[in-house]
């Protein structure tokens, strides 16, 4: 055994990995949909009970998955309401995930409705096509139907400021709105 330093080097690599690892969040899983064409969203509107098809949107839109039982949704709700005022042209579509229709309607009555459409998905089957793992989750889809970005968990003012609004500006610049 002439060279005995290789274990030290391997160990060094391992430590470097651990140092980086401590700064990562193992539970953060990016969506494979980002950068891909969004799945077709077809369903029934919770309020109007009319059929809805995302193919008719022809502009950039936000898909926000929510439920009346979800506390994170409550936390972000006022910020979504705010967004309807600051971004008047933006289409926000709600995906009412695994909820009771009456609960959902009552919730919107009480807290306000930021959504142009609310698609009712009581079984979660539509959510599955979007790779939803819970609520709230928000997707930004451009006019061409491509998923631009995705936010898991509540949209905080910081996240809207630092990530959502810049993404919208970028779309404006590229004509993706």
């Amino acid at each position: 055994m002439k060279k005995a330093s290789w274990p030290l080097w391997i160990f060094g690599g391992l430590v470097a990995l651990f140092v980086v690892g401590l700064m990562l969040n193992p539970r953060h899983v990016p969506s494979p949909l980002v950068g891909q064409m969004a799945p077709a969203l077809q369903g029934t509107d919770l309020l109007s009970e009319q059929p809805i098809d995302s193919a008719d949107f022809n502009q950039a839109w936000l898909l926000n998955a929510w439920a009346s039982w979800c506390s994170g949704c409550y936390l972000e709700h006022s910020h979504l309401m705010e967004l309807t005022k600051t971004q008047p042209g933006l289409v926000i579509v709600g995906l009412n995930y695994k909820d009771q229709a009456d609960d959902a309607k009552a919730w919107l009555d009480q807290h306000g409705n930021p959504y142009q459409h609310v698609i009712f998905d009581p079984t979660g089957r539509i959510g599955m096509d979007w790779g939803l793992i819970g609520t709230p989750e928000t997707f930004l889809i451009d006019a061409q139907g491509r998923v631009v970005d995705k936010w898991m968990g509540a949209l905080t003012p910081e996240r809207i400021e630092r990530s959502l609004l810049p993404a919208l500006q970028k779309l404006d610049a590229k004509g993706g709105r």
Partner: peptide, 13 residues
């Protein structure tokens, strides 16, 4: 472990 392996690389040969 780092110091043990450093010692190893210096002394073992």
């Amino acid at each position: 472990i780092g110091s043990a392996l450093a010692l190893f690389s210096a002394r073992a040969p």
